[in-house]
């Protein structure tokens, strides 16, 4: 039952992604690529670039995108619903408690421990995208490295960290560079 699977997968993504957009990436990867193979690892970054280039929350964009690809508009509806349901219940509950008691010590304690774990999980997701980009599913070895991609990656990191360019601009630039390299026969 594909609708139930979509709903359940995105319910887990909504329930366990703490810290917004990037934090949802490893969870989406786990559910969509590894568990259900709805997308392949080379297709997976599209799931990040397309939601990044369009407005709105990444998780909702991803739910709609995967849902529609797997089971049409109904699939998109079901996936989006699953993704926001945990938020609806949990946030409303916390907001209610907060407006009543205004105590946040425990909440902040949990957040303080979650933050470093979230950074590490985002890093892991980045590593698998990097491996897919440099080696394209082949065995990881020095000889098989795609040096064009490695150069684009290095340049992008410099543009982001040193020149503080907008992430969306950098992603588009990386695409244009690869296209230019392909046109030049590299």
């Amino acid at each position: 039952m594909i609708y139930l699977q979509l709903f359940w997968s995105f319910l887990q993504i909504g329930l366990f992604s703490f810290g917004g957009g990037y934090a949802a990436i490893p969870l989406i990867q786990g559910q969509i690529v590894e568990r259900h193979s709805w997308l392949s690892m080379p297709e997976f970054p599209d799931l990040i670039t397309i939601p990044q280039m369009t407005p709105g929350p990444i998780a909702i964009n991803a739910a709609t995108f995967v849902g529609i690809k797997i089971a049409g508009v109904a699939g998109a509806l079901v996936a989006t619903l699953g993704c926001i349901l945990p938020s609806c219940v949990i946030v409303t509950l916390i907001a209610r408690l907060y407006l009543k008691y205004r105590s946040m010590a425990l909440l902040q304690g949990v957040l303080a421990s979650l933050r470093p774990a979230v950074v590490a999980m985002i890093a892991s997701a980045g590593v698998s995208i990097l491996i897919s980009a440099f080696w394209g599913g082949a065995l990881v070895s020095f000889a098989a490295t795609n040096w064009v991609m490695a150069a684009i990656f290095a340049l992008s990191v410099v543009l982001l960290l040193k020149c503080k360019l907008d992430p969306i601009l950098v992603m588009v630039l990386a695409g244009v560079l690869k296209l230019a390299a392909a046109a030049a026969g590299l």
Partner: peptide, 21 residues
């Protein structure tokens, strides 16, 4: 080709986010 290149871009964006955080 664009999408392939953007894969390297996405990896870079994630790397910089991880670096900062």
């Amino acid at each position: 080709q664009m999408l392939a290149g953007m894969q390297a871009g996405v990896a870079a964006v994630i790397a910089s986010v991880v670096w900062q955080m």
